[in-house]
């Protein structure tokens, strides 16, 4: 059983009287440790699917199961807890908390939980992450003092702070130039390999999609192709 399972998932948005069928019956499974990519043209339903997996939206129909938990019928509190315990997020526009510095942004998800690690343990872990994303020299900078690439690196570290099972990234490179975007995907891949964290990211950039070992292709809210590469491609060497 996959760490993320979608079964016949539909999502219908109502815009006034009009109905928008964003996802029209999607079934797939993502295994633990996958570096998965959801690709497709604009409007094909990538964000919608990531939102459903990310428990910030609920399907109209079908079953979404995250780490064995079916999200259907869960109230806001339970969904919030599920997000905190199993998920990390990376956003297209970085979404760092502007009033917090690099260290504090990474620490932020850790402080939300009830059972936190010890102070020393926490600091060492955050420092490890800062080091891993290559921002040891920028620990106390605010987000407006960082470049886009640097911000996204902070976001990657933040997404990993709670050691989540799954990290979701909706077009993490869309706001970056292709070279920086490439390095961000490579960093994600590195963390995926090192920590065995499942990454699911969306993109419409085919060069970036190649690095993934599991590619789900969408068109108009339906899967057109679901390929798993047994031999992992694009590993850093």
């Amino acid at each position: 059983m996959g760490i993320v399972e979608l079964h016949n998932v539909r999502k219908v948005y109502t815009l006034g009287k009009a109905e928008v069928h964003a996802v029209r019956g999607v079934t797939f499974s993502i295994e633990k440790g996958d570096f998965a990519s959801i690709v497709g043209p604009s409007g094909s339903g990538k964000s919608t699917i990531l939102n459903l997996i990310g428990c910030i939206d609920q399907p109209t129909d079908g079953v979404v199961s995250i780490n064995g938990t079916v999200t259907q019928g869960l109230n806001d509190k339970a969904l919030t807890r599920l997000r905190h315990e199993t998920l990390g997020f990376i956003f297209q526009s970085f979404n760092l908390i502007p009033v917090l510095n690099v260290y504090e942004n990474i620490e932020f998800p850790l402080l939300l939980g009830k059972d936190r690690p010890g102070k020393k343990e926490m600091r060492e872990w955050i420092e490890f992450l800062v080091e891993a994303v290559g921002l040891a020299d920028h620990m106390h900078h605010k987000s407006n003092e960082l470049s886009g690439g640097q911000r996204q690196r902070v976001a990657i570290a933040r997404a990993l702070a709670t050691k989540p099972q799954i990290v979701l990234a909706d077009e993490p490179t869309a706001n970056l130039d292709s070279k920086t975007g490439q390095s961000i995907i490579e960093l994600m891949k590195k963390m995926n390999a090192e920590l065995n964290t499942t990454f699911i990211f969306s993109t419409h950039d085919t060069t970036i999609m190649d690095i993934a070992d599991h590619v789900i292709q969408l068109l108009d809210g339906l899967i057109v192709e679901d390929t798993k590469k047994s031999a992992k491609v694009g590993s850093l060497s």
């Binding site: 919030t80 997000r83 990390g88 997020f89 502007p98």
Partner: peptide, 16 residues
């Protein structure tokens, strides 16, 4: 708004 969404995504409860 976006910041609130981000904090909520990472597991901040409504009350917080």
């Amino acid at each position: 708004t976006k910041e609130i969404g981000t904090m909520r995504a990472f597991g901040m409860h409504q009350k917080q």
